[in-house]
């Protein structure tokens, strides 16, 4: 009886039905569309090849050919998957050919940059909320900072640091910091200002000090905002790390892999690296989500 009841109420639908099925449906649609686009984009070149070779494959043969070119305009999903599998599981993880290695290089600078970015963002937000002068003076500059195209400033930062002998992780992490502090700062300002007037008045009736108000009210109230903005920030951090790897002739990292792929028209490798980058992003966002859930539970959150 209990089971039947559970089965029929939408709210407590099992995770397979409520989450996995819809996600897989969209994935299926995307893969079909991907194969279709591969035919459209690789078709002209394939027809050219066939004509020159004097071949006339049937429709099925033509389709298979467009999905198996060595340097296709758009590689088919299974080509990307194969390359991804080979460069992830078939080589030693610390080898130069391994995507695990490159992902790790990017991940480490993303992580360092994000931690600094988040801390900087929180610090700025705390300052802005507590000092009106900072609110007036800092906020416009923070917003302006994000209008500078990152692609323009990243090479400058890397070059400047290289000229004083600092290369590798630090300049990359700095770009990540630059991109990730902004969403965290803006989200935290909103979060730290989110307590209701009544909750603030209550603190006043207790004659609480500013630091007590901060630790006991503003900070806990801001946490949902912090986690939401950290999810944006961590993804921005990854973009920053990859972009920082592009212009430097960096030898390792997802960005370097992308650049090398584009030099040699290794489209399949580019796509495999893109997949690796996306997976890294998913892992990062999930880690923030996990931290959010753990904190939420510790703070007595209502179960969803």
């Amino acid at each position: 009886m209990q089971f039947v009841k559970k089965f029929w109420t939408g709210a407590s639908m099992d995770p397979l039905r409520s989450k996995i099925v819809p996600v897989l449906t969209i994935l299926g649609i995307m893969i079909v569309a991907w194969y279709a686009f591969a035919v459209v984009l690789n078709g002209p070149f394939q027809r050219d090849l066939d004509r020159r070779a004097g071949r006339s494959p049937g429709l099925a043969g033509f389709l298979v050919e467009t999905w198996s070119q060595p340097k296709p305009t758009l590689p088919a999903p299974h080509q990307v998957a194969q390359n991804f599998f080979n460069t992830t599981f078939m080589v030693k993880p610390w080898s130069r050919r391994s995507l695990v290695y490159h992902s790790w290089v990017t991940l480490s600078s993303t992580f360092v940059g994000f931690v600094f970015g988040a801390m900087l963002g929180i610090l700025i937000a705390v300052g802005i909320v507590h000092f009106t002068s900072l609110d007036r003076s800092l906020m416009p500059w923070i917003i302006t900072s994000q209008t500078i195209p990152i692609l323009a400033i990243a090479p400058m930062v890397v070059v400047v640091f290289a000229s004083i002998g600092i290369t590798g992780l630090i300049p990359k992490a700095l770009i990540s910091t630059y991109l990730s502090f902004f969403p965290v700062a803006v989200g935290m300002v909103k979060g730290l200002r989110s307590p209701e007037l009544m909750h603030l008045d209550l603190m006043r009736t207790y004659n609480a000090t500013a630091s007590q108000v901060f630790w006991k009210l503003r900070l806990p109230a801001s946490l949902p905002f912090l986690f939401a903005s950290m999810k944006v920030g961590v993804a921005a951090s990854l973009v920053g790390a990859i972009v920082a790897e592009l212009p430097t002739g960096a030898v390792a990292g997802i960005g370097a892999k992308l650049l090398a792929g584009s030099y040699y028209s290794q489209t399949i490798e580019i796509w495999a690296a893109l997949v690796a980058g996306s997976l890294v992003a998913v892992v990062l966002v999930m880690l923030v989500g996990l931290a959010e859930r753990i904190t939420g539970r510790a703070m007595g959150g209502r179960p969803a």
């Binding site: 009544m198 909750h199 008045d201 209550l202 009736t205 007595g300």
Partner: peptide
């Protein structure tokens, strides 16, 4: 004095 507001104004995370 102790003050009781219109709403309970309990902190939801406590």
């Amino acid at each position: 004095y102790g003050y009781v507001f219109q709403a309970a104004a309990l902190y939801p995370w406590r």
